[in-house]
């Protein structure tokens, strides 16, 4: 019998970096359409473990999101 406490791992395993597959060299922080899917409903940055981004693009993207936040293009947290 399978261990019931063990979670299924295949839920989010789309292990392709979306920036690599689109051949994006530079992530512009003004391009909100690109960044919007990479923040959660609460405004958090989605980890590469879930989004499947490669480390290099994850670093660039994190910086872009932080810059976009500081100029009010993306939220720091949900509205209250």
């Amino acid at each position: 019998m399978k261990n019931p406490t063990k979670k299924k791992r295949n839920l989010f395993t789309q292990k392709i970096c979306r920036f690599c597959s689109d051949k994006i060299q530079f992530i512009d922080f003004l391009d909100i359409k690109l960044l919007k899917p990479l923040i959660s409903e609460r405004g958090k940055i989605v980890p590469s473990r879930i989004s499947g981004n490669c480390a290099r693009h994850q670093r660039q993207m994190t910086e872009a999101i932080k810059r976009a936040r500081s100029i009010a293009l993306l939220p720091f947290s949900e509205e209250h």
């Binding site: 003004l30 936040r69 009010a72 293009l73 993306l74 939220p75 720091f76 509205e79």
Partner: peptide
């Protein structure tokens, strides 16, 4: 539209 309120404003003119 701003993502959050800035000095009580919800909108703003952006210049780049």
């Amino acid at each position: 539209r701003l993502a959050y309120r800035v000095k009580k404003n919800k909108f703003g003119y952006y210049l780049n």
